[in-house]
Design a protein around this nucleic acid. Structure first.
Length: 528
RNA sequence: GCGCUCGUAGCUCAAUUGGAUAGAGCAACGGACUUCGGAUCCGUAGGUUGUAGGUUCGACUCCUUUCGAGCGCACCA
């Protein structure tokens, strides 16, 4: 819709302009403040310019009226244009809001270490990544979703050790000296018992088995993570193992060295990340020859860029923000365009329950488990609330709100609007086929506004994806649902003169709600 | 101390990325045809957008100052 409008205006004005929506639909459906920017150049008042420009538009086709108000030029769409679009949308539900783009994008998210279950912090990045994936794919981008598995290094060793010691303490009943650092959650003890089942008790007799337990435990945790994700409807196209990329280190390292971006000092190899704005240079190879974590990420990003996507998006927890500079520096040093990498940060989440801080799970080792929250409020509510706020703001919410079945609960509210439309169709004993070709004309002001709002979904999706701000979708769904509830309360549909027209209008609203919800991974309810 | 992110109604958050009178929900108060599902809707009240400057036709948005919060500042991942 916006595309068509832009085309038409472009053709008439023959210059660049900003197209926006008026704050009040009373003015029109679209508006441009172009007269303000022309005022200086033309040495005339914006008001005069706006009036002049308005007369250039013909009001036979797509626009019903083009009016100047206080320097703004306002465009009102014609009913026949809106009706055509509505009919098309109803007949092509799966294409509503879709588009084509050539850009290919590698979207990496979650990538939690396979050393424990997912906690609530991971959930925010997870649902955000998944929503971007769904929206972007719908918009026609070629997106690949990927999970990077840190299956090398200390943490996995620590996992093995923790299971081993838990087994000795709880299964062999021998006294154990716990080291300073280990994984504390009760899930470790559970794992030890599973290990006993699957591998036999003898595994805890010899510390040589720790290595084996590490790999075994890592696989188990990855399985758990996948099932946690599956519970909220998230799956990945590919998992990339850190370990499997290690063979490529020499090649990456050689390129860095040849570009003179590394140096040796104190027996270690450093990368000159300060050249590109990092606070200090970073070690990539330790004195004993083992590569650092950064080395792993250098290989991984080298590998990513070799795969030749147009764009790379990483979603990281906000606590990793300090890492962006060095990774971007490394990408640049490897000879790639680092601006192709976008890092989105998911800020911290704090949960309340009945106004009190949510109890940490002992099972998880003082984290809030994502699976606990999901079993309390469900996947839909979790998604909706996490996607309702800008990802870079700190978020606090009370999970009791999402158990209520009323206005407090936005998931419920939006679903209710959708179900309501279904109920009306049932009451009227009509189906979509009966009304899809009814012409929407001579609508009341309110009906026309509602129709227009419902048809905005495509541009909302577009905007949300481009700005990587998924809360625009949830905001839109809430306001569209509100508009429907309001209209419903003020207008009788079934049995009225305009029954067929209003049913069609409602069908468009329901369509928009349904597709919008689908974009954030929620299945719209037919009845409550 | 340095860096990143953030500061909007009592609370939780929006604001078309520089545009028209800064909007929703909650909480408070007052209302709605004996209902196409009242699981909804309408109204009232609530703001110097943390502070102080600057940029311009125009600033919640950009720049500078200052205060406050969170996070980060590993040869851990």
């Amino acid at each position: 819709m916006k595309k068509r409008v832009t085309e038409v205006i472009q053709k008439t004005l023959q210059r660049e302009f900003v197209l926006e929506k008026p704050t009040n639909l009373f003015f029109g459906h679209y508006a441009t403040p172009i007269a303000f920017s022309l005022a200086k150049e033309l040495k005339k008042s914006p008001i005069a310019i706006a009036e002049e420009l308005c007369s250039k538009f013909d009001t036979e086709g797509i626009f019903q009226a083009v009016t100047p108000i206080k320097g703004y030029i306002n465009f009102k769409l014609s009913e026949s244009f809106l009706d055509h679009y509505a009919t098309w949308a109803l007949e092509h539900e799966s294409e509503f809001g879709s588009d084509t783009h050539n850009e290919s994008i590698l979207l990496e998210y979650v990538s939690a270490n396979p050393t424990g279950p997912l906690h609530i912090g991971h959930a925010r990045g997870a649902v955000m990544g998944d929503a971007l994936y769904r929206i972007g794919t719908h918009l026609g981008y070629k997106i690949t979703s990927e999970y990077y598995v840190n299956d090398a290094g200390n943490q996995v060793d620590l996992l093995g050790l923790s299971i081993y010691l838990a087994g000795r303490e709880h299964i062999l009943n021998v006294a154990v000296q716990w080291p300073e650092e280990f994984y504390r959650g009760e899930y470790i003890v559970d794992l030890a018992f599973v290990a006993k089942e699957e591998l036999g008790e003898a595994i805890f007799h010899d510390e040589k088995n720790i290595k084996h337990l590490s790999v075994w435990g890592k696989d188990k945790m990855l399985e758990l993570i996948r099932s946690n994700l599956a519970d909220v409807g998230i799956s990945f196209e590919q998992f990339v193992s850190e370990k499997s990329l290690y063979g490529q280190w020499d090649a990456s390292f050689t390129r860095l060295r040849n570009n003179a971006k590394t140096y040796e000092e104190g027996g270690k190899v450093w990368i000159r990340s300060t050249d590109l704005g990092d606070e200090k240079d970073r070690v990539v190879v330790r004195e004993d020859g083992r590569p650092t974590y950064l080395a792993g990420d250098i290989i991984y990003h080298d590998n990513k860029f070799q795969r030749g996507y147009d764009r790379y998006i990483n979603i990281w927890g906000a606590d990793h923000h300090g890492y962006i500079a060095r990774v971007k520096a490394a990408i640049n040093f490897l000879g790639y365009d680092e601006s192709k990498l976008e890092v989105l940060l998911a800020q911290m989440v704090s949960l309340l329950k009945g106004g009190e801080p949510y109890k940490m799970s002992k099972r998880a080792g003082n984290f809030i488990l994502m699976s606990d929250v999901v079993s309390e409020i469900g996947s839909d509510a979790l998604r909706f609330v996490f996607l309702s706020k800008k990802s870079d703001t700190h978020l606090e919410f009370d999970i009791d709100v999402f158990k209520q079945e009323d206005n407090n609960n936005p998931v419920f509210y939006v679903n209710y609007a959708h179900a309501r439309v279904n109920q009306i169709f049932a009451k009227a004993e009509k189906s979509l086929q009966d009304i899809v070709h009814i012409k929407l004309e001579n609508l009341s002001e309110e009906a026309q506004n509602l129709l227009f709002s419902a048809l905005l979904l495509p541009e909302v999706l577009d905007d949300a994806f481009h700005s990587r701000q998924v809360q625009k979708v949830t905001e839109y769904l809430k306001s569209l649902a509100a508009a429907l509830h309001k209209f419903y309360n003020e207008n009788r549909v079934v049995g009225s003169e305009d029954e067929a027209k209003l049913l069609k209008l409602f069908a468009v609203v329901a369509l928009s709600l349904r597709v919008g919800l689908r974009m954030i991974g929620i299945h719209a309810k037919e009845r409550m």
